[in-house]
């Protein structure tokens, strides 16, 4: 087990470096000239331009630039944006919003997804099973962009149940965007639970539990569900990292000042340091949660041994 974790940790390092270098190269090697763009219509005085280029190491070759960046990164310094503000401050300020959004999304995904999946799975081909199958197919087909606007229109404007913009109402502001962000994964969790429950309902130990005369609720909750949830829990864990990507659209439509919105604004303003900093953070989350899930798998399911 220890060796497995060590090996997995070692494997994540090149992925993290590679992904951040990829984005670094796209941001700093490809663009025309963000420094010239800073001046807007009038060009900057040459001295100022040279100073900025120097400050951001823009005169070095790409690999040297990246090396310097990583050197600073491991000391917790993500650089500064064009208005001299440390990128780490932006992240500190924006991250809590995205974390809240992700927490709400994960809760929706887990609670609604698992309940729907269990209801569908315990009676395969029953009425509820078909309802869940059709509705998950529909949900998966709706692009998150469309879902966001339909939710805003129906639940926000027509029914007036939820706030549709900003974060002024505390956790309430996150309900609708959280549900939108979770929708696709929610459908997947429901299907995964359904398949898993339906499979386990036929397992020998479930038959034994029934034969012992245990009440149906106990058979389902203690015997079937516990085993069925292993793939579901691991999917949800890995999804925490993946939600960050979906947050760009959700935060833009619902006007939430999280890191998704921040990275989108930074891309538009060609604020390279901010883009690279936030994307690296997102990649880190993604890899980190995937690693946790891989380890969790072995802990939850004693049949799996990595050594």
């Amino acid at each position: 087990m220890g060796r497995y974790i060590a090996r997995r940790l070692l494997l994540t390092i090149p992925v993290l470096i590679g992904a951040s270098f990829l984005i670094f190269a796209m941001v700093f090697a490809l663009p025309g000239d963000p420094v010239a763009a800073l001046g807007g219509d009038r060009s900057l005085p040459p001295a100022v331009e040279a100073q900025i280029r120097d400050e951001f190491n823009l005169n070095d070759p790409l690999l040297v630039q990246y090396g310097k960046y990583v050197g600073n990164l491991v000391q917790g310094d993500l650089g500064i944006d064009f208005s001299q503000r440390p990128v780490i401050d932006t992240i500190e300020q924006r991250l809590p919003v995205t974390v809240r959004l992700a927490v709400v999304a994960i809760l929706f995904e887990a609670i609604i997804g698992i309940v729907a999946g269990v209801l569908a799975g315990i009676r395969r081909n029953g009425f509820l099973d078909n309802v869940v199958l059709v509705s998950t197919t529909l949900i998966v087909s709706i692009p998150i962009l469309v879902l966001a606007f339909v939710a805003q229109f129906v639940f926000g404007l027509q029914l007036g149940w939820f706030p549709i913009s900003g974060t002024s109402e505390g956790w309430g502001s996150f309900l609708l965007p959280g549900l939108v962000l979770a929708a696709g994964s929610l459908a997947y969790v429901a299907r995964l639970t359904r398949t898993s429950v339906a499979e386990n309902m036929r397992a020998d130990y479930v038959r034994t539990a029934k034969a012992k005369g245990l009440p149906r609720s106990r058979v389902i909750i203690r015997h079937t569900l516990r085993n069925s949830l292993i793939p579901v829990v691991t999917f949800i864990g890995a999804d925490i990292g993946a939600l960050m990507g979906g947050a760009i659209v959700t935060e833009s439509v619902f006007n939430l000042p999280g890191i998704g919105r921040a990275v989108f604004d930074a891309i538009n303003n060609q604020e390279g340091a901010v883009v690279v900093g936030i994307v690296t953070l997102m990649v880190f989350f993604f890899i980190f949660f995937n690693l946790i899930v891989d380890v969790l798998y072995a802990v939850l399911d004693p049949r799996i041994r990595y050594d």
């Binding site: 590679g18 990829l22 490809l30």
Partner: peptide, 27 residues
């Protein structure tokens, strides 16, 4: 490993950055 690297970047995010800087490049 190359696949893992690309996999770690969200699709919309990667394409967003590339298309934003794209017009100023000569690719």
């Amino acid at each position: 490993r190359v696949t893992d690297i690309f996999y770690a970047l969200p699709l919309v995010l990667g394409a967003l950055v590339l298309l934003r800087v794209g017009p100023t490049t000569n690719i």
